[in-house]
């Protein structure tokens, strides 16, 4: 019995160690994992915006997250288009062609103008210089349908390190954040007025300042006046 107990204890010791070893092996490309879920009203409101749309098309500007594709596609019945803008930025950094980003964004997206119901912009604008951010924002405004909405996240604090964030949708009102290494760090924080100017064709419908000093903003494209 005593032997059995000691064996159990031994497995108890070995068990967690194996898990942590496996985790460290898997996470060599990930600098930091935040698996704490964060409540989000902004995502809820974003989803509410899509309710009137038939088989809505969502453009996700982050890296592909399998569970997000399942959430939007399988559970909500959306079409989802993944366009990893962080990968675009890194490619331009590698090639030493960051100054070409504004021109690149102008012709980057394949969906027809006015065909997208919702855009998950996440925090990608934080990583761009002003001309590139403006070019991207202009392209996104063009893609949105009248009545369509855009969710943008903006850091209001300096964040050191060259990391991007994956936003993992847990459910309609919860997100998890997961950082991974990139080739560019966040640029100077955008002020509220700057953000509104970037999306001058859209209307701000909601703005939430989180304890983490992340600002979540929801924009809507107004319907054209009759």
């Amino acid at each position: 019995m005593a032997d059995a107990r000691s064996l159990t204890d031994l497995f108890g010791i070995l068990g967690p160690r194996r898990v942590s070893e496996a985790a460290s092996a898997v996470d060599t490309s990930v600098t930091h994992v935040t698996e704490v879920p964060y409540p989000t009203q902004a995502l809820q409101k974003f989803l509410r915006c899509l309710h009137g749309a038939e088989n809505p098309l969502i453009l996700d500007l982050g890296p592909v997250v399998g569970s997000n594709v399942t959430f939007f596609g399988e559970q909500l019945g959306c079409r989802i288009r993944v366009e990893d803008v962080a990968a675009d930025i890194d490619r331009h950094v590698k090639g030493g062609k960051l100054e070409l980003l504004p021109e690149y964004f102008a012709g980057r997206f394949t969906p027809a103008p006015g065909s997208v119901d919702g855009i998950l912009c996440w925090d990608i604008l934080d990583y761009l210089d002003r001309p590139a951010a403006q070019a991207l924002a202009t392209a996104l405004c063009r893609l949105l349908k009248p009545g369509g909405c855009l969710l943008g996240l903006f850091s209001t604090a300096e964040t050191p390190g060259q990391v991007y964030t994956k936003y993992v949708v847990v459910d309609e009102s919860t997100l998890r954040y997961r950082t991974y290494p990139g080739l560019r760090q966040r640029q100077r924080s955008l002020l509220n007025g700057d953000i509104i100017k970037l999306f001058k064709d859209l209307r701000v419908t909601d703005s939430f300042l989180m304890k983490s000093r992340l600002r979540k903003m929801l924009f809507r494209k107004p319907a054209p006046r009759a």
Partner: peptide, 19 residues
């Protein structure tokens, strides 16, 4: 496809239509 699974570490660029 009605069901799509994308693993962490996979690359995907394009649209998904499950409808």
């Amino acid at each position: 496809s009605p069901r799509v699974a994308i693993a962490e570490g996979a690359h995907f660029r394009g649209a998904v239509d499950m409808q």
